[in-house]
Design a binder for these strands. Structure first.
Length: 431
DNA sequence: TTAAATGATTACAC
DNA sequence: GTGTAATCATTTAA
């Protein structure tokens, strides 16, 4: 049974405004004549037919027809009947209580866009996000060019996002207004409550929300791609300069028994390395990079000690040469300034070598070794000694490597295990 | 072009 | 929080 027939059937049994509408349109007192009843039914049928086919007509025709129907003397009665039918069938409350909880995925997308600086208040075109990402990756300011590119791209994404969002909101509002006007207009001829209009608006908004979610999703994807391209530290990895690597290696091999620099030592090394790093203007090596370097070095050294042996010897030789020069200078200085001090009795107290930097400590300790004319109380008699060859092939014997008092005292179990492992390296004792 | 080297990240243990 | 081990991604040298 089609809609029109159903309504007509319903109309057949509904009383209206105190009148019998037993199929009657003009609603005169019933005569009980079948022919008259048939005529009334025909009238009602015509009106309904006009209503149902109004959408098939042109706008002007429809407007004219609508006006005619609104002015029809039977219109109030028909409207009441439709209200009554609606009341009975419960159409007005169908789905009225639909209230969706907030979509968790939409919330996630919103949060992410906010965190990235795409949505929400302008935060310098995402510079905050860029800075945060740079800080998180341990990167330094040497990526300012990349970050400005990142900011520019992020600003572009932000602009596109807001433009599209504006379009979406405009379209949504326009469509909602249109539908509301339409429903209000229709409410003159068919029973539509404000609540129903509200419900319809809700449906429209939900439909548009799904489009909005697609926009947010694609924006998030774009930001993720941008981040990985510009801010992923692994992508923009640069090797340290030779000088920086040398400084780090010198420290590592001169503290081989316990290559765990303190926070202060790391800062010192970072500071020293930053002078020599040549990867971009104003580049620095951060403390975390120093930590990374030592972490990698320890692991790789441990994994393949044999391979690093040559390197270890080379740095030990360097340290020895430096130390020898330092001691020679010290001795000469001592002789010049203190003529009363006999060479054979050349004594130096540890306190005289309270030096700050790790390198200075190394020099001190190597001085202890090379200062053969003096009697030094070597604090690390158990440490490893490497035999080594100088660059010109001369043999250096007994350059002490890794003699760091502080590190020995403060060594943890893990450190000691490293020392144990390290002592397994075949070495020559000092003569 | 490819393998080795290297800086950074991640998961896990302590 | 720090260090280790495994791994990734990029750079460098052969």
């Amino acid at each position: 049974m089609d809609e029109q027939a159903r309504i007509m059937q319903a109309l057949g049994g509904v009383s209206l405004a105190g009148h019998s509408i037993q199929g009657g349109m003009a609603l005169p007192p019933p005569h009980g004549h079948d022919g008259i009843d048939d005529g009334r039914k025909q009238d009602i049928g015509d009106i309904l037919h006009q209503i149902m086919t109004i959408t098939d007509q042109s706008l002007d025709e429809a407007q004219a027809k609508k006006h005619g129907l609104n002015c029809h003397r039977m219109k109030p009665a028909l409207f009441s009947v439709l209200c009554e039918i609606k009341e009975k069938t419960g159409l007005s409350i169908r789905g009225a209580q639909e209230e969706d909880p907030p979509d968790p995925q939409l919330m996630r997308l919103d949060n992410m866009l906010l965190a990235e600086g795409v949505s929400g208040p302008e935060k310098g075109g995402g510079s905050a996000a860029a800075a945060a990402a740079a800080a998180a990756s341990g990167g330094a300011s040497d990526n300012s060019i990349e970050h400005s590119d990142y900011r520019a791209k992020l600003t572009q994404i932000r602009q596109i996002y807001h433009t599209e969002l504006e379009k979406y909101e405009q379209a949504c509002n326009e469509f909602t207004t249109h539908v509301m006007n339409l429903l209000r207009e229709q409410s003159r001829t068919r029973p539509i409550s404000p609540k129903e209009i509200e419900r319809m608006v809700g449906i429209i908004h939900r439909k548009f929300s799904s489009i909005q979610m697609q926009l947010k999703q694609s924006t998030c994807e774009a930001v993720m791609i941008l981040r990985s391209r510009f801010l992923d530290a692994r992508r923009k990895r640069r090797n340290f300069s030779k000088q920086a690597t040398e400084i780090l290696n010198e420290y590592f091999y001169s503290h081989l028994s316990n290559p765990y620099p303190s926070e202060e030592a790391k800062e010192e090394l970072a500071k020293k390395c930053s002078i020599t790093v040549s990867q971009g203007v104003g580049s620095t090596i951060t403390v975390s990079q120093v930590s990374n370097w030592f972490g990698n070095k320890r692991i790789r050294y441990k994994k393949n000690i044999g391979k690093f042996q040559e390197e270890a010897n080379l740095y030990a030789a360097k340290t020895a040469v430096t130390a020898a020069h330092a001691v020679a200078a010290a001795v000469q200085n001592s002789q010049t300034n203190s003529p009363t001090t006999p060479n054979s009795g050349f004594q130096m107290k540890d306190e005289e070598f309270q030096l700050d930097s790790a390198e200075s400590k190394n020099t001190l300790l190597t001085n202890m070794f090379t200062g053969s004319s003096g009697s030094f109380n070597l604090p690390n008699s158990g440490d490893m000694f490497l035999s080594m060859q100088s660059l010109n092939g001369d043999s250096y014997q007994g350059a002490q490597v890794g003699a760091n008092v502080q590190s020995q005292v403060g060594a943890t179990n893990r450190d000691r295990s490293y020392v144990q492992m390290h002592r397994a390296i075949p070495v020559l004792p000092v003569c």
